[in-house]
Amino acid sequence: MDFLTVLISRANYWAYIILMMVGLYAMIAKNNLVKKIVGMSIFQTAVILFYVSIGAKQGATIPILRHGPVPEGGGIAHAALRHGTDAVQAVNYINPLPHVLMLTAIVVGVATLGVALALAIKVYKEYGTLEENEINQRLRRG
């Protein structure tokens, strides 16, 4: 397999690796607490992208069963219904499980981001700064 095929056939993994490393670097190396929180959000996005891309299937449609009137055209699932094959084929629908997991993870992520920002506000009120080295200095001085 040549380089370009690998690059294209696993593009989702490269995207999530880049995002995850950007987030991880921000969490480790950035000095400002809000920038660390932004890094955490980027890291979270990388995980979400990874899960959702795992659920994808070639030639499959969204995980909602065809019901109601069947239109002309449409994907494989529609064609199967038109030709009277009634049984639902798992190949025709993408994997719903990663979508369920990430659906809740996104909302919980927003809520926990709120808690992180609340902590940052609290730290700012206490120390008057969000820079980590200045907070450390103040802590060492007692």
Partner: peptide, 21 residues
């Protein structure tokens, strides 16, 4: 890891067919 959109990836062969069907 399985390729993007692979219908035979481990994630889509064990549990999810039950949900779909």
């Amino acid at each position: 890891f399985p390729e993007f959109g692979d219908p035979h990836s481990p994630a889509s062969t064990h549990l999810s067919p039950y949900y779909i069907e």
